[in-house]
Design a protein around this nucleic acid. Structure first.
Lengths: 124, 124
DNA sequence: CGGTATCCTTGACGATACTG
DNA sequence: CAGTATCGTCAAGGATACCG
């Protein structure tokens, strides 16, 4: 067996869909980015991400915790402090994340060049 | 200005969400993978992707066409033949795609090692 | 401060039938 | 063959209020 064997078709689809299950959806990557950039407290993360609500943030944090990408620590100070941090394992998504950032950046630039202002998608 | 400047926080979120708008969702990447692997005809693509329906495939193909990742060509043979192919621009998503395939693969292996069979997600 | 509880809307997706 | 049309379901996400 060679090292750089290409994945077969069905596996590619399966693996991509796995990845999307764990870090897909509207908010999971933004949350990871926020925590990566130093936000640790619930309300810090909440206010750092435009338009996210506390309900969704709460649910998504739990999902990320269950998938071992984020860890939740409770400090018994008074008042109780709760901090979210990225796990070591979370750093394995860096490549996915940066490739998406890069692609989104160049795509936005490409659109700006090729389209009249009237065609720009609103609210983004 | 240095070349390898890191993107700021807000831009990262914006760019990632742009990327998700274009190639996010359950089926867009599987469709790209299918076409990449040589499937060109509507029904070919349809039957190559487990559980996708024709309605969804039709809609997603149109989305991908509008975003210039896939091109639809009509050949005036009889009977009329229609073929979908990846655009040159679509090859720019290769990095995103392969990083997601890689991550999904290692994640699945990680889960298999660390979890009892009963915890495996069903239907995947 | 760090969330839950309720209620609601929307859009993604699915099943099935049908058409040029 | 390459789709559309119609109808239905479900889950993601949003608005607002409230709680320990």
């Amino acid at each position: 067996m060679s090292k750089k064997e290409e994945l077969n078709f069905e596996d590619k689809i399966k693996f991509v869909q796995d990845t999307q299950y764990v870090i897909g959806g509207k908010w999971k990557l933004p949350i990871i980015i926020s925590v990566y950039h130093g936000n640790k407290r619930f309300n810090e993360i909440l206010s750092s991400i435009p338009r996210i609500t506390n309900r969704v943030l709460s649910k998504e944090l739990r999902h990320l915790e269950e998938n071992e990408l984020i860890s939740r620590k409770v400090y018994d100070d008074y008042p109780t402090r709760i901090e979210y941090t990225l796990t070591d394992y979370c750093h394995s998504v860096a490549e996915v994340l940066t490739s998406m950032e890069k692609w989104g950046k160049q795509h936005r630039e490409r659109i700006k060049k090729n389209m009249p202002a009237s065609m720009h998608r609103t609210g983004i």
